[in-house]
Design a protein around this nucleic acid. Sequence first.
DNA 1: TTGTATGCGTTATCAC
DNA 2: GTGATAACGCATACAA
Lengths: 354, 354
Amino acid sequence: MDRIVRIKDIAEKANVSTGTVDRVLHDRGRVAEDVRRRVLRIAEELNYKPNLLARALVTNKTYTLAALLPDPAADSYWQAPKDGVEKAENELKQYGVRVEQYIFDPFDPDSFSRAAEKVAATTLAGVLVAPIFYRQSLAFFNTWKRQGIPFVLFNTHIPDYEPLMYIGQDSYQSGFLAGKLLHYGCKAEATFVVAHIEEDVENSSHLIRKEQGFKDYFAQHDPDGRYRVLSSDLRRSESHTIAQQLDRLFQEEAGIKGIFVTTSKASVIADYLHQRQKGQISLVGYDLIARNLHYLDNGVIDFLINQNPKGQGYWGIHALADHLVFGKKSNPIKYLPLDIITKENLQYYIGADS
Amino acid sequence: MDRIVRIKDIAEKANVSTGTVDRVLHDRGRVAEDVRRRVLRIAEELNYKPNLLARALVTNKTYTLAALLPDPAADSYWQAPKDGVEKAENELKQYGVRVEQYIFDPFDPDSFSRAAEKVAATTLAGVLVAPIFYRQSLAFFNTWKRQGIPFVLFNTHIPDYEPLMYIGQDSYQSGFLAGKLLHYGCKAEATFVVAHIEEDVENSSHLIRKEQGFKDYFAQHDPDGRYRVLSSDLRRSESHTIAQQLDRLFQEEAGIKGIFVTTSKASVIADYLHQRQKGQISLVGYDLIARNLHYLDNGVIDFLINQNPKGQGYWGIHALADHLVFGKKSNPIKYLPLDIITKENLQYYIGADS
DNA sequence: TTGTATGCGTTATCAC
DNA sequence: GTGATAACGCATACAA
């Protein structure tokens, strides 16, 4: 029966007091060099592991984190990260971790800046942020870096200022995976479309990476030149609707067998395919939001690639806590699994944990 | 700043001592009814939540759990649950949870009985077990039930004695999902084969459920009667090899377009398809074991359905701890996600967490 | 029936 | 440089 090793055990074995051991273990100085080495050696020998519970109990520090999140009311996609953040907060409450949420409008860069401004005005232990506005984000990264406040990015990766961690998906690989899914569903000659919907593609590097991954998949799996990949930037304007654009696309291109939507808006294409009775066309998109799930259930959408948005919020907060509370260091990039969701396994991914 | 609510706070507000509050909160009796009600009301008002850290620190109880696991050396599939058990043990060590592993030979029922016998001879707080031998398991369930020892089942569900929890996958639904995957990959007329390999199908209800799910998928998605589903029980014997059986099958059935292997032995079929150069046939199986991964990488196996075996061990131990240490009750069935694995998203599922 | 005192392992503040 | 010691929130043995 190997009892747990306490500071007291080390102290007794080293013929010093617990205070001394504590100073050694925490590098607080004011301790003789020979004693230091002896204590360190014994701690090593006994394989001492601090009791985190006792530590959390006594330090009684509260770490206030900020979570800078897009408003779920504006885009329901962001509900899941928020849930994840709250789940982590609940788990970590007992360790003195608190999370303040700062919500911004995902369609308004100024709203992001205002929220980040508020964050910067508070004294915080760490920040979790979805930096969906590149330019607006940079200024704040700079501030936090200077102040030594660790920040974790999720959803969108901006490596410039070395965040403590990025959590999200590998955009390139997800496009590659989408290629596989469409390819598997259509082995005959075919044209596939990469559809960007209502997005400023030029300024969204992750969309470009998704497209690149998709194209590279076919570049690597098409020795006989049977597949063509088109890219289409669909945005409604005063002069035309998205449906009209698609009509034109299908008119010009006869052999379209599959569409890969790079955003969470696959339902827009599904709408169209459903109306036009184009049941034979495979459709792959992202994210388990209600509008998509409707068409997944219908069979109009074949697969959704899930970015585990809840997990992103959850692990983001956990990464900050690991760093601040537990002094653990972890990999600067955490890619969450690229879950393949169909109507048949959907049930296990909604409302579940982590 | 809402400070944390302690027992002491309740005590002060109710004009009693902490001891009294403690007795009320733990229903230990020996307390006046009016005081009891007052304390309860105030605790409610203040939204008192016990500090689990402090509790764990003071109770200092050690809970010894038994994990009855098949030997990974005999079948590498079982390495993952073992890893999951050990991961959970590590996390829960600080709460006084210890896990003793009892390893048995997954091909030898007697070995299981011997291991379970050892478990029964020890005094334990709870048991996690993969009851892969139905008959041999029942006797021990009975014992544990009588002794009031909670036990959690994983991998194989045997509801007879009401375990604290079953953790695993939904066999039926996984077969249904396999149907979808093969169907999506082949929309033209086709014959599909459900292959059971080296298994005593009659005594393996989960294999039957998988097959049923698969058949039901096509029953529901084949209005024009384009698909045929065959079931094939492949076992090598003195008179024939599995390859010979398959040769005969392909001879008799011309239109085979896909095979669903109900066990982790998809690599056996992959071997065959690879040798016979049958590249056009879709192949879906189970489990991320090395032999399968080889053919997944090859492209011979298209999809593997993952039962998250590591998660089964992990969550199994956690379920016991939640019950014993934290007094949480949870759902008696926890289905883990049916992960769809391809070559392209495999990397996120191996060596990762939970 | 109720209140008080002690200790869990750690940190932090003293006095020496 | 070092060693006592109080405190964190809770459970419990024991005194009243």
